[in-house]
Design a protein around this nucleic acid. Structure first.
Lengths: 335, 335
DNA sequence: CCGTGTTTTTGAATCGTTTCATGAATGGAT
DNA sequence: ATCCATTCATGAAACGATTCAAAAACACGG
């Protein structure tokens, strides 16, 4: 069964292929009666447009790609959900690619996406080593918007949250609760978000004279959090509070601590980052630094379409949101 | 800057387009020296293959689509992760589509995927109303494998877990713990997985004379679980145990109960379904019915490629896995 | 230097759309 | 009847890669 093409439809309806194309793309330009005949033929033959041919002719696809660090992290799924409506209402399609915090995977995705001539790219880069690849895409007329990451000196639009400030908020909160020995859990340090959050935290600790100890993890997931806190168990001078680079790590830490009988927050407080839905829902509700996840996605998509619309004379915009601390039971008995 | 094509590369390297194509696709068939010259030209011009053109010629894309009910549900991300390695090692690419338990969204995805002439489709259908659409795809030579869902009388391969049995396991466990009033939380009932799990549960309850009350929810997420248990709070004859249609619902239920001071498992036990990583990690570790998530994905991909390889004379296979109960603290003080 | 066999390269045909300059048909208005 | 304006339909030329039969280049023994 060889797939049926426009030519077959045209023959069946007794018109030319041009007309079939018109029925599909500018129905108002085709006479009522002809249109009906063509539509009937389409239904009859079960004809389905061939998108490759369409794209080849158009020169671009209608796909907007989002490359994220971890699809299993609710933070990113929320960002994606924020971006989707706008893209779809513009007639586009969203495709999500998971780099898994791995530069090689990220690069493979970028290669493929370039071959596919995607309409645009929203990306949270793994680290700075991707910069040249990303620039290659935008050099080839594929607009790129950096997500959850300031553009810095890079020539792109970006939406980001002030992570240094977020780090400050978390640390300040802990200090205000009287903590003098604080642990930072997260990594790898090559991830800019991790570095920034730590920087903000360190700043506050130094100002206030609190002690800061860093537990580097190989990734930002549940497992990592649990393993990290196990390292600090049983120590005499164990930190009295933990600031985790994201909520998955924090939930892991929470789990690790409770499993070993350490009471949260009485014996050890925890602050997370992202304020994913699970955070409020943990059995010890988690204090966390909230980012406007959906809005991040929405704005990113908006910037992308602006750039597409403005074309040549577009000037890049860098939007920065401010994070906000949400205090819950994991840092204070009163909550 | 108009994109550079093979023709440009050919001109720059002083060869024909056929040769350029060969360098890319069968390098061994091109003389050493020529190949070097062509590769140099490619690098020089920053040439990137046009995938649309490739696909048009090939007649199919290299994309395997996975349509899931909810990308934010770790169950599905694990299934996807299970399928990815196999697909990628076969030179394919995975694209994930989220139907969000919504038939209309699902249908839109199917239309698009058919236009894209995807290599194959792995899908967890929202409900039975999609059957005819799915059959249309496979009628158009796009192999389809049903995931987490028996094929029944439908002409497809499938990988599934025996959900009725899973329901039985959960209910039996609760009954063995001495519970006589059990609540089932989940919905909508049109989702086959929900219906099956309930059926198994009901069966055991009837056998053992336990009372069963059903709390239907509009979806299978966190929110739904929390809201559902709130309905049953404050009742005199409140059920002493809850079986939730999946772990997200169960975590919501757990949250709802603890928030209202109901002790789990002392005052109310909970069993979930899927055994996602968060389940073990909840502050009251959740008993759950485990499904081999990654293996589900892996097997589905395997079946898909088998079908592609075998072509015409392929007979559909339906693989059914058995679920397994993992008992944790949410159903027993001893754990 | 020829014939034979092998390795390379060529270039035209093809995939299925969209686009657009032309042409045909229709309907008034004069 | 004639002319003009509209409204519709046509068909050939792209788009950029792959394929494959045929041509060209080369190697080598006699």
């Amino acid at each position: 069964m060889t797939t049926t093409s426009m030519k077959d439809v045209a023959r069946a309806a007794g018109v030319s292929v041009g007309t079939v194309s018109n029925v599909l793309n500018r129905p108002e330009a085709v006479a009522e009666e002809t249109r009906a005949r063509v539509l009937a033929a389409i239904a009859e033959l079960g004809y389905v447009r061939n998108d490759s041919a369409r794209q080849l002719r158009a020169g671009r696809s209608r796909t907007v790609a989002i490359v994220v660090l971890d699809v299993a992290n609710p933070f990113f799924t929320d960002v994606v959900r924020g971006a989707e409506p706008l893209v779809e209402s513009a007639g586009g399609v969203v495709t999500v690619c998971d780099s898994g915090e791995d530069v090689r995977r990220e690069r493979r995705h970028l290669e493929l996406l370039e071959e596919q001539r995607v309409l645009g790219l929203l990306i949270t880069p793994v680290d700075d080593s991707s910069a040249s690849w990303i620039e290659r895409l935008s050099g080839h007329d594929i607009p790129v918007v950096l997500v959850d990451r300031g553009a810095g000196r890079h020539p792109h639009c970006s939406v980001a949250v002030d992570d240094v400030h977020g780090g400050r908020l978390a640390a300040r909160h802990l200090v205000e609760q009287g903590h003098r020995r604080i642990a930072f859990v997260g990594g790898p340090a090559s991830i800019p978000q991790v570095a920034d959050r730590l920087a903000g935290c360190r700043e506050v600790c130094e100002e206030s004279g609190a002690e800061l100890e860093v537990f580097a993890t190989p990734g930002l997931n549940f497992q990592a959090g649990r393993e990290a806190v196990e390292q600090m168990l049983g120590r005499e001078d164990r930190p009295t509070a933990v600031f985790c680079a994201n909520d998955l790590v924090a939930l892991g830490a929470l789990q690790g601590l409770t499993m070993h009988g350490v009471k949260v927050p009485q014996e050890c407080a925890i602050v997370g980052y992202d304020d994913i839905d699970f955070a409020a829902a943990a059995a010890v509700p988690l204090s966390s630094v909230r980012q406007p996840r959906a809005q991040l996605g929405r704005t990113a998509a908006q910037l992308l379409f602006d750039e597409i619309a403005e074309g040549r004379d577009h000037t890049h915009r860098n939007v920065v949101f401010q994070p906000e601390l949400v205090a819950r039971a994991s840092t204070s008995l009163e909550l």
